[in-house]
Write a protein that binds this DNA or RNA. Structure first.
Length: 703
RNA sequence: GGGCGAAUAGCUCAGUUGGUUUAGAGCGCCUGCCUUACACGCAGGAAGUCGGGGGUUCGAAUCCCUCUUCGCCCACCA
């Protein structure tokens, strides 16, 4: 009711009991209809005090009744409104949320009436609603969804209550910390966090650093019981610095982040100028979770500039978060987590690490399925297993040749190549894998430097599994026979490749790589991969020509394997094939890897002269090179026609698409020359392959 | 309420300044193999109108607009 009895205003609230602490009712200054009320007094029911109607922009236009009760002691927004209008802030609850006037120190007789005095807030709410009803001052009750703060530990609804606290004035600390990130002096990775960081820094509020907890660093503020002098001190004083009276230390402790923000230098002996501090400050890369960017990272940057005059680190790498298949963050309270120890037990620590590193691209979260650990972590286990088996194979070659363990020769030869590769002795497969390895070293190093851990991990995976194991190890097997001429060289290349791959992979799968690496020849007992040198690529081993030629070897083998599968020929059946190099494809390359082709395509006969004749299956690849597999008695002309026809049609479709592109003058004129040249080269190769197939189709009499 | 991000094969995701890609990988799926390092493996294969619509461009999964859906972070919500 208005105090002058001329009417009333209606106020909505979700916390009726706090009306005992109301000091004003506010309306929005632009709410024309309500301006007449501003300056009038209203009587707060139950509390029986008169308070003014004021105008303030904290009121949201169009929300609720348009009248907002102001309770400065029990609501943060209201506190600020109260400050703006110079209003009092009566506290009407105790620290354990029972109704009582704090100003009366536990005695009744103030704003809190006897009916609810000493009552818990929720009980008081019920009683007060009843009282309002009886006094016919309750207009209506309706459901309203809104956010209520709960204690993170016991889930109790938290009640805002005005109290004295210590704050750090943040504005002076912000400027250098904001500038550092803006200029790139401190780099955030991924970069998009910069916006978030800047927004927070620009709107920073003073930092409440006092906590009413049992455990923590006590606030070093002292108060004299006699004269009231109050000061902060580095030492613990025993008497007042002014009058010599008894002193008391502030009972509160510091916010945990108030000590954490000193971490970059306090851990190294600060405030003393220690050698560690000199050597290790500033640090290089801080790795942490994104949600801690404000709590910790921003504050470390601020404290670094303030206390040390320098940034605390150059790069902040913010990693992803582990989530479940519904993208919920894994947490103890939700119970949707994956226990790392289970994963270690079932799949190994390397498998766990592999999944998290290889499965997360920069700045992205990683989704793990707590209900299907197998499909989540098996790939990592499988890869570790593959590494182990390659290691077993390599080591077996080096140790059991004549039943007498590894020899002196093995150890010396294995590392000679590193300094002086002799190209003339190397096979095509050697040159290919060595060149591939150099590219791998460069790419993996580059990826890691850019925090593209997934990219680096997967590049290693591809090299180890698909280059080294699938092709090189298979190609090199015949040369590993004890009496083979190039056995020492083969060992050298094999060990060099494997050793280097282990070094590259060590950050991702540290345990198995360490174990394997220490078993390699030439290792001293004290050597650790963990501190071994990072590989450097040797440009002398780069060999694009060998890479291209060995690609053709692979293609020839793959064509033969595909023919074998198409005609359902048992893997045990050895076949005879003719491979004809065409165009720029080098015939001597095929000849030099004759053994490899025979073994991997399961042939008992291969010729590199002329084209194949008789009944058989045909395929074309590369620069028009051809492969012919004799299939007397197996071949079905109709099926061969269909097979070749399908391949010819596929090439035709591609050629049609390309032709449209290349006949468009716009493209030819406006696209970069090298792009156009590449398209023409593609067109040439596809056309040669297509023409080859056409000829074959004709000669088979396919319609 | 404010800010940010994501939608690409059945699933989880790559695809770095628009053009070497015939849109890839792992898992799953289909066929055949215990080929003396590995069946946690080998060989071959199927599978995607790159969320919808519009635009810019000679050219778009990639840039712009819009719609839809999902998610995350922050917040002083009467």
């Amino acid at each position: 009711p208005l105090a002058d009895g001329t009417g009333h205003v209606t106020v909505a609230t979700t916390r009726p009991e706090t009306m005992l602490g109301d000091v004003a009712v506010a309306v929005h200054p632009e709410d024309e209809a309500k301006q007449a009320f501003v300056g009038k007094m209203v009587r707060v029911p139950i509390a029986n005090v008169e308070i003014p109607v004021i105008a303030d922009e904290a009121v949201e236009l169009g929300f609720g009744s348009g009248f907002l009760k102001i309770t400065p002691a029990h609501d943060a927004t209201d506190f600020e409104t109260g400050q703006r209008h110079g209003l009092a802030a009566p506290i009407i609850m105790t620290t354990d949320a029972r109704m009582a006037d704090a100003a009366l120190e536990g005695k009744a007789g103030g704003r809190v009436p006897p009916e609810v005095f000493g009552m818990d807030r929720f009980e008081a709410r019920r009683v007060m609603v009843e009282m309002l009803k009886q006094q016919k001052l309750l207009e209506k009750i309706e459901p309203h969804r809104h956010a209520v703060r709960h204690c993170y530990r016991c889930d109790t609804v938290v009640e805002p209550r005005l109290s004295d606290q210590w704050f750090v004035k943040m504005q002076p600390l912000v400027t250098p910390a904001l500038e550092a990130v803006r200029t790139g002096e401190v780099r955030l990775v991924p970069e998009r966090w910069r916006t978030t960081y800047e927004r927070w820094m620009e709107n920073i509020r003073d930092w409440n650093i006092s906590r009413q907890l049992w455990w923590g660093h006590r606030i070093p503020v002292f108060t004299c019981a006699a004269c009231g002098e109050q000061w902060a001190d580095r030492e613990d004083p025993t008497a007042c610095r002014r009058c010599g009276g008894a002193v008391e230390q502030d009972p509160d402790v510091l916010d945990t982040w108030f000590s954490s923000w000193l971490w970059p230098f306090a851990t190294m002996g600060w405030p003393d100028a220690t050698p560690d501090l000199e050597r290790f400050y500033p640090g290089t890369t801080l790795v942490t979770a994104p949600e801690i960017l404000f709590f910790w990272v921003a504050r470390m940057i601020m404290s670094g500039y303030y206390f040390m005059g320098k940034k605390p680190f150059t790069t902040v790498y913010l990693h992803g978060t582990a989530r479940d298949t519904q993208h919920r963050r894994m947490s103890k309270s939700l119970g949707n987590g994956v226990d790392p120890l289970d994963v270690v037990r079932l799949f190994s620590a390397d498998a766990l690490r592999w999944t998290l590193v290889a499965g997360t691209s920069l700045g992205a979260d990683v989704v793990l399925d707590p209900n299907d650990l197998e499909s989540t972590f098996a790939p990592g286990r499988n890869f570790a297993n593959k590494l182990w088996n390659i290691g077993r194979f390599v080591l077996a070659q080096l140790t059991d040749r004549d039943g007498q363990g590894r020899t002196e020769t093995d150890q010396s030869v294995s590392f000679r190549l590193l300094s002086s590769p002799s190209a003339s002795d190397l096979s095509l497969a050697d040159r290919w894998i060595l060149s591939r390895l150099q590219a791998t070293i460069r790419e993996v190093t580059g990826s890691f430097e850019q925090f593209r851990l997934d990219e680096g991990a997967k590049r290693c995976f591809d090299f180890v599994w698909h280059d080294l194991a699938d092709w090189y190890v298979e190609a090199v097997k015949p040369r590993l026979a004890p009496n083979a001429a190039s056995v020492a060289l083969a060992h050298t290349v094999l060990v060099y490749c494997f050793d280097t791959a282990l070094r590259l992979l060590h950050p991702v799968v540290p345990f198995i790589t360490e174990e394997l690496w220490q078993k390699l020849p030439g290792r001293k007992a004290s050597e650790l991969l963990a501190v071994a040198a990072w590989p450097e690529s040797q440009s002398a081993l780069d060999n694009p020509g060998a890479e291209a030629q060995f690609e053709r070897i692979k293609q020839a083998i793959e064509k033969i394997r595909a023919i074998r599968a198409d005609y359902r020929i048992s893997p045990k059946t050895r076949l005879a094939a003719v491979i004809a190099a065409r165009g720029t494809d080098a015939p001597e390359a095929f000849r030099s890897e004759r053994e490899t082709i025979m073994r991997l395509a399961q042939l008992d006969q291969v010729s590199f002269d002329g084209a194949g004749t008789g009944v058989g299956a045909y395929a074309t690849f590369g620069d028009g090179s051809e492969v012919f597999v004799a299939l007397e008695g197996v071949i079905d002309v109709a099926q061969e026609c269909e097979r070749l026809g399908a391949e010819r049609d596929r090439l035709d479709r591609q050629l049609t698409g390309l032709a449209a592109k290349l006949s468009n003058q716009n493209i030819v004129a406006r696209a970069p020359a090298d792009v156009v040249a590449r398209e023409w080269e593609k067109e040439r190769e596809w056309r040669i392959q297509r023409d080859g197939l056409d000829g074959k189709l004709k000669s088979l009499g396919c319609s």
